[in-house]
Amino acid sequence: MTHEELRDLIPAYALDALEPEEARAVEAHLPGCAECRDELSSLQAVAAELAAGVAPVEPPATLRERVLAVARPRRLAVVPSGLWRAGLAVAAALILILGGITLVQFQRIRTLAAHMGALSARLAAQERVLVLLASPTSRTATLRGSTQANVRFVYDRATGQGALLVSDLRDPGANFVYQLWLVAGQEPQSAGVFRPIPGQPIVIPVNADFRRYQAVAISVEQGPQGSSAGPTTVPILNGTI
């Protein structure tokens, strides 16, 4: 389909009024087209108002209990990454105030602080894996398939916490991402997309009621959002949980 044909599908996409194959074509087009992305996000905001315009009905209290039961608390406390970041900010500010620093130096510090923010996010993800591994009820599944990689999935049925650990996975190519799927019967559900970082192991946190799933799989999808319907390619890695 041409850009014009796909652009004409955006209003219907915003209303969830496309046939599945049309929706997939739009999803494949979006990552590379800023014009269509902008149009979609503004029309989705209109659609959100249509949702908000429905006369409100109070849901039963039992629904809240059932929904929150899905999200189980962790057993061990983890150092909140927010504290780390706040500490860094204060330190950066102090250095600046005490030193009478030039704007160039300031920019450098800001870049550094941004790096440290990213680092603290990675640290939080790694802490999560430590917590998981320390749990007596956690299990590990090794994913195998058509590609050479070291990919494991650690999960805890008791707490609903899990994480995908990835190293040595090759780059999926520009415009592509890896997408992680949790599989219940024949129904794969997306658990997020990621791109490997060369030379670095990465951790993707996943929250789910793992008792409901039998497998995890990774497929290559069009980036940056991946597929919303299910894998569009044969998964390259699979594991049983």
Binding site: V70, S190, A191, G192, V193, V206, A208, Q225
Partner: peptide
């Protein structure tokens, strides 16, 4: 789905 895929 929100709980599971907020990371997305």
């Amino acid at each position: 789905a929100i709980w599971r895929s907020a990371g997305a």
